[in-house]
Nucleic acid binder design. Structure first.
Length: 561
DNA sequence: TATGGCGTCTAGA
DNA sequence: TCTAGACGCCATA
């Protein structure tokens, strides 16, 4: 985990009075606090830090009772109503027509909401280089209606009408919403999103500080909380939101995404590192429809028209491998690398993956390394590496393509400045968004850039987790965030795991063993080339030899015949 | 069913 | 002829 000093170096420290990093470290590093207590303390701290002390809100955040974790998915005995006092934030009818806020947060189901501490951090009109941030702009609206309730405005009024759509979707769900309607809805939301971003950006500069420091009644702000419904990484169905009874007046909640796994047990929560997340317990009673996951998917908000990179697949693969820590990656990490640096692939038709695999198999520049079948459920697969004998060739190939149209390449990159580092293999990528601690570099500049990249990776997490600051380069680990997002953590048994996940622990190097594949006839010759010990390999189907790791080092392989 | 590995076919240089 | 890419098949988890 980043130490406090380095975190400060990221510029993500929120203020002079508190250090969220220290706070989080403390929470996660201690066994003396339950997760519930962590959440309680953190949420209160966060909310108080933003709106506490504002008498116009008419409540004291520190007086709120604890947010209970739900071990009673059905009964939901734990009610968080005490949290927000007797005044209901919401109108309380999920199908209410007088509120476009579809979340019926009244009722006992409120207890089922697991509020991630990060969720309540204000991300107020943070100017973002990408549309992603538009999903997590946090703002506060002190505006009340005549009843003293929160005025849950239609997003359509000022930022788009996601709630109108939520409502529509709710109705649609009741009417067995069909796919066509979904499409229309998605399109509509995309437009709304654009509007939302535009407005957010327009008002961000002058309002951001103001709102973060004090609540100005004349400023209508909105809390937009994304709650990911994670039945799987692909949400496919309209989801409902559990109830939250009372939320402090003046706070308007716009968006929820429900994090929930179909196999989730009460002891498990899904964590959401990116975004401001609210965790919903498995038993959360669904009351109101929320947009399907697809509609909240990052890719939907990251639709910049990135062109297809002007590299051949083999070049892209070579770059991925070259920028890996071990010089080898599973195909999935090659995908990730490509998506991460060339957003085109995030939305490209799936065929590109076939092409990648095809290239790996057919191109003699790439070598397959057998990976042990272990790790239980993990698909066996293979690791792929650049054939050391072909490294120079691949370098030339990459350079050739780079010279062809560098501008087009940079246009296809999410971070054009990283191009040279990628070409030189100096942005070590360990898969899962990790980066090497021992980034090799040919010069000081590269070292600095690599370090910046490394920090930016963490910065992405942190920005989405606990701070308002947001570094453009943090987008580099979108893929990683997604992957970690759905990691399931047993919070009862493994707080340490949670800690590690939040810190994006360094990836364990793969261990290799002699391949037992019956397809391959092995003949050891023991020729050593660079970091590899080569053994010629013959396969029945494939040209490629299989490399097998020699020893426990990170970059020594045996090539098996 | 999703993913991974690889073969076949085609187009263009 | 070579390379790149699209597409499809099959095995596997």
């Amino acid at each position: 985990m980043l130490d406090t000093e380095s975190r400060h170096g990221t510029g993500l420290v929120q203020g002079p009075t508190r250090d969220p990093w220290l706070t989080m470290d403390y929470y996660l590093g201690t066994d003396s606090l339950s997760l519930q207590e962590m959440l309680d303390v953190d949420i209160k701290c966060e909310i108080e830090g933003v709106i506490g002390g504002h008498t116009e809100l008419g409540f004291n955040i520190t007086d709120m009772s604890s947010l209970e974790m739900d071990d009673d998915p059905i009964g939901c005995h734990n009610d968080i109503s005490g949290w927000f006092g007797p005044t209901s934030l919401l109108n309380g009818n999920s199908n209410s027509s007088n509120s476009n806020f579809n979340l019926d947060l009244n009722g006992s189901d409120a207890a089922s909401i697991m509020v991630n501490p990060n969720s309540v951090m204000p991300h107020i009109a943070v100017r973002s280089p990408t549309p992603n941030n538009g999903r997590r702009h946090f703002s506060f609206s002190p505006k009340k209606d005549a009843k003293g309730k929160i005025d849950v405005e239609e997003e359509a009024e000022n930022e788009g009408s996601s709630y109108t759509e939520n409502e529509n979707e709710n109705e649609n769900e009741n009417d067995n919403e069909n796919e066509q309607e979904n499409e229309i809805e998605n399109d509509s939301e995309a437009e709304q999103y654009e509007n939302d971003i535009t407005e957010t950006e327009e008002e961000s500069e002058d309002e951001q500080q103001e709102v973060s420091k004090s609540m100005t009644p004349s400023k209508s702000k909105t809390i937009s909380i994304s709650v990911a419904k994670a039945a799987s990484p692909q949400y496919t169905k309209a989801q409902t939101i559990p109830k939250i009874n009372d939320i402090p007046p003046g706070i308007r909640i716009q968006n929820f995404k429900v994090l929930q796994s179909p196999n989730q047990t009460p002891q498990h929560v899904r964590k959401q590192i990116y975004n401001n997340n609210v965790h919903i317990n498995p038993g959360a009673t669904a009351v109101t429809a929320v947009k399907r996951e697809k509609e909240f998917d990052l890719s939907d908000y990251d639709d910049k028209p990135y062109p297809k990179p002007a590299y051949s697949y083999s070049c892209l693969i070579a770059m991925a491998l070259k920028n890996s820590q071990t010089g080898s990656l599973p195909v999935s990490e090659i995908y990730n690398f490509m998506c991460e640096h060339f957003p085109y692939f995030k939305t490209a038709p799936n065929g590109w993956k076939n092409s990648v695999r095809h290239n790996l198999s057919l191109n003699k520049c790439f070598e397959k390394i057998e990976k042990p079948a272990g790790n239980g459920n993990q698909r066996k697969g293979c690791l792929w590496a650049i054939n050391p004998a072909k490294v120079a060739k691949m370098d030339e190939e990459v350079q050739k393509w780079s010279r062809k149209d560098p501008l087009a390449i940079k246009k296809a990159m999410i971070y054009p400045d990283h191009l040279e580092l990628l070409e030189r293999g100096e942005m070590k990528y360990a898969g899962n968004g990790d980066v090497s601690e021992e980034t090799e570099s040919s010069g000081d500049e590269a070292v600095e850039e690599s370090t910046a990249y490394e920090e930016s990776i963490h910065g992405h997490i942190t920005a989405n987790s606990v701070t308002d600051s947001y570094d453009e380069s943090s987008q580099d680990c979108d893929v990683d965030i997604h992957e970690h997002l759905y990691d399931e953590i047993d919070i009862e048994d493994n707080k340490e795991a949670l800690h590690m996940h939040l810190n994006i622990s360094k990836q364990e190097p793969f261990e290799y063993e002699l391949s037992s594949s019956t397809k391959r006839q092995k003949t050891l010759t023991g020729a050593i080339q660079g970091n590899y010990v080569y053994q010629p390999v013959a396969t029945t189907r494939r040209k490629a030899p299989v490399l097998v790791r020699a020893g426990t080092g990170n970059s020594s392989f045996l090539k098996i015949d």
